[in-house]
Simulated assay, not measured.
Amino acid sequence: MSKAPRKSIVASFGLLSAELESTQVPDVQSLATVPSPGPGNRVGAGVIGAAHRAIDDIRAERDQLKAFLAAGVGAVQELDTSFIDPSPYPDRLPEDDASEFEAFKHSIETEGQKVPVQVRKHPSEPGRYQIVYGHRRWLAAKALGRPVRAIEVSISDLDLVVAQGIENANRQDLTWIERALFASRMDDAGIRPRDIYAALSIEDAELARMRSVYRSVPTDVIEAIGRAPKIGRPRWLDLAKMITHEPNALEVIRLVLSKKGDLPGTSNQRFQLALSTITPRTPSRREPTSISNAQGRKLGAIVASAKEVRISAEGALGVEFIKYVEKQLPTLAEQFTRQLDNEKP
């Protein structure tokens, strides 16, 4: 992890707001307004550490943001997209439908990039940058072959993931598995659990559930499945449990997901395919066979499998028939034994 000197979190977060993907140009007054979390994003009582620091610092320093911008620090600049790398903690999986991104790219092409992205200097590669937030705008500019408008900030790895987490709190379209994958990448990078709680606005029980999934379902399998917007936490937990307990489950799933030409078109369908592939199949229900006497009167029905025979009665005569069969069982067993003896060489 990089050890960049810790600056004001407000200065680092700059343009962070729920309007990052809008087409409105933010003014200084709007930049100084602290974005409030969405109604479904309450931070639980157990979330401490970086979340508290971020919220306290933002409230304490909001007035400093105007001076920060007025001084020209963090001014918008145009950067060559080829010198920019994605965040080291990706929080997005590819869309199932590319048309949404194409529409977004078209709006950038026709109306221009209204809102700058935020970047930091790459911690290990001089002359390069990393995205803090604004990946879609960077990708759109890259696809259009034009520079991207950006604000450069000095920000540590810890503040970067908290910044992404705060931005994501105002985005309703991140799926559960994308959030879990974000947690996984922070975990791998050595981010402390309390700071993961802060970045995702979750508590330890939810992180434990996420870990049970991404420690059982490898990243390559998650990426092969995709965002799966209609698949929530319970289904991913089911998949993780199946993989843990079924021998060769991962090998089977990887084989199925590698057949590109035969894969379903949506990530929801790919998830269903992966789960159904390793789900034990229940034996198909056998239809009963009717039992009738010589006069055609129905006595009952029989259902037979490799290990079981069931006979049901039809009326009073059927009940008498079952009693008769029961009495004949010892005789049948004796006849069966004699037949086996006769068949021996």
Rank of each mutant, 00 (worst) to 15 (best):
P264K: 09
K307I: 11
Y214G: 04
S305W: 05
A198L: 10
V221L: 09
K241V: 00
A240V: 08
M242D: 09
V217C: 01
G315A: 04
I196E: 02
D238R: 13
E246P: 00
M186F: 06
S212K: 09
L317H: 08
S305G: 13
G296Y: 07
A301C: 04
L299E: 07
H245I: 12
P193H: 09
A198W: 08
R286E: 09
I302V: 15
S292A: 15
T266S: 14
A306D: 11
E314A: 15
E203L: 10
E287P: 03
L263P: 05
F321R: 05
D262S: 15
P229R: 12
E246Y: 01
V213W: 05
W236Q: 05
A240W: 04
I191P: 02
L207V: 06
A249W: 10
S216Y: 08
D195P: 01
G296H: 08
E251H: 10
G300A: 11
R286M: 10
E251C: 02
D220M: 07
S305C: 01
R286D: 06
R209I: 06
A294F: 03
A294W: 00
D195C: 10
K298Q: 14
F321L: 09
R215N: 11
P218H: 12
E320C: 03
A183E: 02
F271V: 05
E203C: 07
N293W: 03
E251D: 12
R192T: 11
E287M: 14
I231C: 01
K307P: 00
A249K: 05
R192Q: 13
G315Q: 09
K307V: 12
G232I: 07
E251I: 13
S184T: 00
R215W: 08
S312H: 10
E308P: 00
K241M: 04
E287G: 11
T277R: 13
T282Q: 11
I243T: 05
D204A: 15
S312D: 13
L239M: 02
G318A: 02
A313Y: 06
T279A: 07
I278N: 02
V303H: 03
I278A: 03
L239W: 04
A208E: 11
A199C: 06
R227N: 01
S312M: 08
E251V: 14
R270V: 10
R297L: 12
K307G: 12
G261D: 15
P193D: 13
F271N: 02
L250Y: 06
P288N: 07
V217R: 01
R297V: 14
D220V: 11
T266E: 05
I291L: 15
K260R: 14
V213N: 04
V256M: 12
E223L: 08
P288F: 07
A274W: 05
P234N: 08
G226E: 06
E246L: 03
R194C: 04
L207W: 06
R286C: 00
L207A: 10
I253D: 03
I311M: 14
E308K: 13
R192C: 00
I191M: 10
S201Q: 12
A249V: 09
I225E: 02
L275N: 08
G300L: 11
R209A: 15
G265C: 02
A224W: 05
F271K: 04
E320N: 07
M210V: 03
A208I: 01
V256W: 01
T266N: 03
P283E: 09
F321Y: 15
T266G: 03
K260V: 13
E223H: 02
T277V: 08
